[in-house]
Measured scan of single mutants.
Amino acid sequence: TTIEWNGTKITVDNPQKAKELAKKIAKKLGLTVKVHGNTITIE
Rank of each mutant, 00 (worst) to 15 (best):
V35Y: 09
D13C: 15
Q16P: 02
V12L: 13
A26V: 04
A22P: 00
K9L: 13
V33M: 07
I3W: 01
T1D: 06
V33L: 06
D13F: 11
G37Y: 03
A18L: 05
K19Q: 11
N6R: 04
T32G: 05
K9N: 08
D13I: 11
V33S: 02
N6W: 15
P15M: 13
I25A: 02
I42S: 00
N14K: 03
L29V: 06
L31A: 14
E4F: 09
T1I: 15
V12D: 00
I42G: 00
T32K: 10
E4N: 08
Q16D: 11
H36D: 14
K27I: 10
K34L: 07
N38H: 07
V35P: 02
T8H: 15
G30C: 06
V12A: 04
K23A: 13
K34A: 08
E4T: 03
T32Y: 03
V35S: 04
I42R: 00
K27C: 11
E20N: 10
N38D: 07
T2Y: 05
E4L: 05
T8D: 10
G30M: 02
E20H: 09
T1Q: 07
K27L: 11
D13V: 11
I3A: 05
N14S: 13
K27T: 09
G30T: 01
I10Y: 04
V33H: 01
N14V: 04
P15W: 10
G7Y: 07
Q16C: 10
T1P: 08
N14M: 04
E4H: 11
L31M: 13
K28W: 14
I42Y: 02
E20K: 12
A22C: 02
T1R: 07
G37S: 03
I42N: 00
T41S: 09
P15E: 08
T8F: 12
K19P: 01
T39W: 06
T1Y: 11
T2G: 06
N14R: 03
V12R: 01
I3D: 10
I25C: 10
T39P: 01
K17A: 11
K9I: 15
L29E: 07
K23T: 11
L31P: 02
L29S: 10
W5A: 08
K19N: 08
I40E: 00
K34Y: 05
E43Y: 11
N6T: 08
G37P: 02
Q16R: 13
T39K: 09
E43S: 12
N38M: 06
T41I: 14
A18P: 01
N6M: 08
K24E: 09
I10R: 01
G7R: 02
K28Y: 13
T11P: 03
T8L: 14
L31T: 06
A22Q: 01
T41L: 14
I25E: 00
G30F: 02
E43G: 12
G30N: 06
K34F: 05
T11A: 05
K9C: 15
D13H: 12
D13Q: 14
E4D: 14
P15R: 09
T39Y: 07
E20G: 05
K17L: 14
T11Y: 15
T41Q: 06
K23H: 12
I10N: 00
K24N: 07
T11M: 12
I42W: 02
N6C: 15
I3Q: 06
I25H: 00
I40D: 00
P15F: 15
A18N: 01
K28C: 14
K27V: 08
N6S: 06
P15G: 05
T39A: 07
A18K: 01
T32D: 06
V12G: 01
V33R: 00
T8V: 15
G37Q: 05
K28M: 12
W5M: 13
K17M: 12
H36S: 13
